[in-house]
Simulated scan of single mutants.
Amino acid sequence: MLRERLLYLMERYFQGACTEDERRELAQFIGTEQDDDLLKEVLDDTWERFQPESPMPEAMSGRIQRALTGAPVVPVRKRRPLMAAAAAVLLLLAAGGLWLSREQSASVQQPSVAQVQKAPVHDVAPGGSKAVLTLGDGTVIELDSSRNGVVAQQGSVKVVKLANGQLAYEREGQAPAEILFNTMRTPRGGEYRLTLPDGSRVWLNAASSVTYPTMFAGEIREVSITGEAYFEVAERADMPFRVKTAGMTVEVLGTHFNVNAYTEEKTIRTTLLEGAVKVRAGGSEALLKPGQQAGLQGNGRLNIKNNVNVDEVVAWKNGLFQFTDADMPAVMRQLENWYDVNVIYEGNVPERSFGGAIQRSLPLAQVLKILEESNVKFRLEGRNIYVMK
Rank of each mutant, 00 (worst) to 15 (best):
E22C: 12
R77P: 01
L253A: 10
M332K: 07
T267I: 13
T249W: 06
G254K: 06
S209P: 03
T46C: 14
K266D: 14
I370D: 08
N337F: 04
R188C: 09
K266M: 11
W316A: 04
T267N: 10
A365G: 05
I268C: 02
V314D: 00
M248H: 01
V308R: 03
Y386Q: 07
N148G: 03
E53W: 10
A131H: 05
L287V: 13
F378A: 05
N318S: 07
Y339M: 03
R80K: 12
L135Y: 11
Y13D: 06
F241Y: 12
M184N: 03
S200Y: 09
I304L: 14
G189E: 09
K377F: 09
N148I: 06
D340P: 06
V73Q: 14
A86E: 01
R171K: 15
K161D: 06
M10C: 13
A365P: 00
F321N: 06
S156N: 14
V313H: 01
Y386N: 00
R77A: 05
R185M: 08
D137Q: 10
L204Q: 03
G96K: 01
G62T: 14
A234D: 13
A84M: 12
T245E: 05
L92E: 11
L320R: 09
S107A: 15
T263R: 12
V387I: 06
T195N: 09
E372Y: 13
E142I: 08
A326Q: 07
L7R: 08
N309I: 02
D44M: 03
P52A: 11
L335E: 10
E285F: 07
G165L: 09
R66W: 13
Q104T: 12
A88D: 04
R79S: 05
F323G: 06
